[in-house]
Amino acid sequence: MLFSIDGKTALVTGGSRGIGKMIATGFVEAGAKVYIAARKHAASEETAAELSKIGDCIALEADLSSEEGCRALATEIQNREDKLDILVNNAGATWAVPIEEFGDAAWDRALNVNVKGVFHMTRFLLPELRAAARPEDPARVINIGSIDGLRVPRMDTYSYSASKAAVHMLTRHLASKLAPDITVNAIAPGPFESKMMAETLRTFGDQIAASAPLRRIGRPDDMAGTAIFLASRAGSYLTGAVIPVDGGISTT
């Protein structure tokens, strides 16, 4: 069962919508027990209720913009589980204002959630990840980077692009440190239907789709497919990889 994650336990941060929800949905469909965490508990509850119709999904509340918030979510998991097979660090924040107005407020939230949040969640959950690791079936950390961390975006999202480049490097650094018990890889999504992308897609959707070599934006299964590959037996020898899932945009 090369691509099976049946029976594994996963946490997907920011799992109530967008890319996190795409991954959570794929994991639940594939037989994993999935915790989703989001800042808005109602959104989390709603998604968990929806996914519980097809499998096992539990809603948690979390604000990952501070170390304490990360610790609180890790504790929630630790209270419920002795081991965690898969951690998907997906929660993210962006900010777009003209460069003249791009102050600390625009930097802090993106760096806190996108970079420090990824690091702290991984750090706090190390005991449960290590407890899940078996020889040739390591525990998995999957970080969500972005093609905006690979090539220069057109929008005024300086803290976002810098934070996502940081996620890619942090992925490689953690991979080298946490092997062989835990693999750490990143997915660098291109344009997908998410709340973060909604405004951009409304304005430039057709143009963006046309500019991708694959001539469309990403679909939920495209995101879930790569995450399942990384989380399954098939992905057990990959660590430190940054995988663009972008319809080829980063080649252009």
């Binding site: 497919g225 790569t226 899932v245 319809g247 080649t251």
Partner: peptide
């Protein structure tokens, strides 16, 4: 496979 249908050039 189709699981990688949005991946090209990598």
């Amino acid at each position: 496979s189709d699981a990688a249908s949005y991946i090209t050039g990598i």
